[in-house]
Simulated assay, not measured.
Amino acid sequence: MGAPEERIPQTGRYADIVHECTLLFSEIGYERASVRMLADRLGMKSGSLYSHMSSKEEVLYWIIVDVAQEFFDSGHRAVEAAGSAEDQVRALCRSHMRVISQKKLKVRVYFDEWRKLDQPHQDKIISLRDEYEHLLSSLISHGNANGEFECEPRLTSRLILSALNSTLEWYSAEGPLTAEELADSIIDLFFAGMRQR
Rank of each mutant, 00 (worst) to 15 (best):
L168E: 04
I125D: 01
Q122E: 07
S54L: 10
R154A: 15
F149M: 04
D66R: 04
V99Q: 04
S101Q: 07
S172I: 08
L189I: 12
S138Q: 13
T22E: 03
R94H: 10
I63E: 02
D118Y: 12
V99A: 03
T178E: 02
Q102G: 14
R90S: 10
F149C: 00
R77T: 11
S51T: 15
I64Y: 05
S127R: 12
D73G: 10
R197V: 11
E113S: 12
E150W: 01
G12N: 08
T178H: 05
A39E: 09
V65S: 02
M97L: 14
Q69P: 03
A68L: 06
A145P: 04
L117C: 03
E152H: 06
G29Q: 05
G193Y: 06
V79K: 00
F71C: 02
D40A: 15
S55V: 12
R13P: 07
L159D: 00
F25S: 05
H96C: 05
S162M: 04
A192L: 09
S138E: 14
R77V: 09
A91P: 00
D66C: 05
Y61K: 03
D188Q: 11
E80R: 13
L168D: 08
V99N: 01
D188I: 03
I160L: 01
F111M: 14
L92V: 02
E113P: 08
I125R: 03
S84F: 01
T156G: 00
F72W: 07
V79E: 03
P176I: 10
Y132N: 13
P4Q: 02
F71G: 00
S101V: 02
F25N: 06
G83T: 04
H52T: 09
S157G: 10
I63S: 00
E113W: 10
H52F: 14
R36N: 14
E180P: 02
I186P: 02
G193E: 01
E80L: 12
R90A: 07
I28F: 06
E70H: 06
V65D: 00
D16N: 08
E133S: 14
N146L: 06
E174S: 15
L155E: 11
G29W: 09
A145E: 14
S137Y: 04
M1G: 13
S138D: 08
D73P: 11
S162H: 01
I28V: 07
G43L: 03
T178Y: 01
K106V: 04
Q10G: 09
F191W: 05
L49F: 08
E113F: 13
D16F: 13
G143N: 03
D112V: 08
V18P: 02
S54Y: 07
E57N: 06
M37K: 13
S74I: 11
L159T: 04
Q10F: 11
D118N: 12
C151W: 07
F72Y: 08
A39I: 07
T11A: 11
M37V: 11
I28D: 06
L105N: 06
S46W: 10
Q88V: 05
F71L: 02
V65I: 13
G83Y: 09
I63R: 00
K104V: 08
R129L: 14
Q122W: 03
R154H: 10
